[in-house]
Simulated scan of single mutants.
Amino acid sequence: MEVVVAPSSREYCNVERNQQEEVGGKHSEHFDYSQRGQWLRAVVLGGNEGLVSTALLVIGAGRFGHETKALIITGLAGLFAGAMSMATAEIVSVYTQVDVMNFQTKRDLRRGRRGGAFLRGPVPSPTQIAMAASAAYVVGGVVPLLAAGFITSLKVRFLVLFIVASLSMLALGWFGARLGSSPIARSCARVLFGGCIEIMIILGKTKLLQCFGL
């Protein structure tokens, strides 16, 4: 009996590479950009979380002291801890998705539904997605740390962080849309709006706790 399994992410990468070679390194009109969706999602998520979390860490740590050396050390510690946490969360969550897809494929095969395995798309690689998310977290977090970590004035530091974070979010939105061949303006606006909302929520929570003396 012929055995049919869901195609792996590596097989889809080979298909993508072959399509590029056939058109001389340029994407054809029928190129399937959805193949990049899994790792692009991880990159945008990791980069945005690293950017926002580190920016807020720099703002929060700066309230308790103006020594830049301690601030940089605190920022680096939080940066790499966050990257490891991001990688672990991605591995756990993606493996859940992989298990569901694989066992659904086996159920389809037992029921004679051979074509169903191919309609759900490639099986994602938890390791690759975790590495993409954690690397993007580090890159996104380094930007605010280097931009404002050496500034002693709290007001100037906050202003620099706001400008740098906004530009970085726009760049992240452009990157995701460019590689995914999706509307750039919509992607940039979504990442910028989401990041700003996240920052305002956390800052608002901090202000609220301060009002109650906590």
Rank of each mutant, 00 (worst) to 15 (best):
S85E: 03
A177W: 12
A135G: 15
L172A: 03
P122G: 11
F150D: 02
F193R: 11
S166L: 09
G194D: 00
L170E: 02
F118T: 01
L146D: 01
W174A: 03
L159G: 00
D108W: 15
I91N: 05
P124R: 02
V142A: 14
G141A: 05
V142E: 02
M86G: 07
L192T: 11
P126S: 06
R110H: 02
A133P: 01
S168Y: 04
L145Q: 05
A87Y: 06
A136L: 12
Q104M: 13
L161G: 08
M101R: 12
G176A: 09
P124A: 09
Q128I: 05
T152G: 12
F118Y: 13
E90H: 04
S134Q: 05
F175A: 06
V143K: 08
T105L: 05
F118C: 00
A177M: 11
I129F: 05
S134Y: 11
V164K: 06
V156C: 03
N102Y: 01
A132N: 02
A171W: 14
V100C: 10
S93P: 00
P126A: 06
F193V: 14
L109R: 15
M200A: 15
L172E: 00
Q104H: 09
V92Y: 03
S93W: 08
Q97R: 14
Y137N: 10
S181D: 13
T88G: 13
G176P: 14
L192D: 01
A147M: 07
M131P: 00
Y137P: 08
S85I: 11
P122F: 06
F175R: 06
D99T: 15
L161E: 02
T105A: 13
S93Y: 06
R190G: 00
G112T: 04
Q104K: 14
S187G: 08
I197V: 15
L161I: 12
A189N: 00
L179C: 08
A148Y: 11
A148N: 05
T88L: 13
V98D: 02
L154R: 13
A89L: 07
F103K: 14
V92R: 05
G115H: 08
L192N: 06
T88K: 07
M200Y: 13
E90D: 01
P124M: 02
M131L: 10
A171Q: 08
S153Q: 11
F118K: 09
R111T: 00
A147H: 04
R120S: 10
L154N: 14
R157G: 03
A136D: 03
